[in-house]
Nucleic acid binder design. Sequence first.
DNA 1: ATGGTTTTTACTGCGTC
DNA 2: GACGCGGTAAAAACCAT
Length: 327
Amino acid sequence: MVKSNIRRDHTKEEKEKTEDTSETQKTECPECGGEVSQSGSELVCDDCGLVIEQDQIDHGPEWRAFGPQERDQKSRVGAPMDESRHDRGLQTQIDFRNKDAYGRSLNASQRQRVERIRKWQTRTRTKDSTERNLQYALSEIDRMTSALGVQNNVRDIASNLYRTSLNEDLIRGRSIEGVATACLYISLRQLNIPRSLQEMESVSRVDKKEIARTHSYLVKELNLEVQPSDPKEYVARFCSQLDLSESVDKKARDILDKAEEARLKSGRSPIGLAAAAIYTAALLCNEKRTQQEVSEVTEVTEVTIRNRYKEMLAPLGIEESEKINSQ
DNA sequence: ATGGTTTTTACTGCGTC
DNA sequence: GACGCGGTAAAAACCAT
């Protein structure tokens, strides 16, 4: 039901206020420019009678309540679904106590009955291999997210992704671990908090290669959009791992911006670029870290850092002399 | 499969502390 | 002599064809 009855006799300001919250923003008639008002489920021009909109969608509940208790009774919302549970946290729980709703103990036959129901409840909760698969995968995703120390929303997105790949029958012939890790990897990328394949490998039970393979497979099969990660997304994390100050962090981002202008990014690994930028930035800020130290936390070889660093020096023209001074 | 590009591995030489 | 760093060649990985 549309709240037309309230509309009619409102003063102008109040009318505008209510219109803001509703889905219609039109205040004047497109034909004659006259004032528009709500009539039943239609939006009608007061002057010419033109029906501007009909069959509007009411986003409110379809029931009516005449008091708080009634509202509580009729409301059907409850705890949110939890994507990280194999049944989204919607399973039925049967109390372990042998008491009825009033707290009285059950008699022998009732107790037997309840025990039988309870037994089947736990048996059917994870009813087939699919559900067991899901349960295992989700617990793995959970384990890996906490091992990586990222927020729980990542876990939910990864869980959801795993669920859809399971529904699409993409797991067949692949390890549950591999797919679970790939899902997590993709989710992290989508949320712009990327982790390198090495980092994924360190928390997963499968090797880098399989993660990468499964990742590209999932991306292809599910038509996901996973754009290459931005080197800047790694900077903050690596900087703090290296105990570098804010200014280095900022400098490294500047360097990456300049590197982008100089078209140095294409084809190069984002992490390699980030590593070199951090190395250079630390050098310029007199908080020097050795190539080896940077290499250790970024898991990029010193050779790559050197090569990127060398390339970056040219576009940073001014910086080169500075660098020579500091040495 | 293949060829081109990038990264890694492994090693050497140079200068500095 | 250990260390940081720059360089190199070859292997491995990666990518598009």
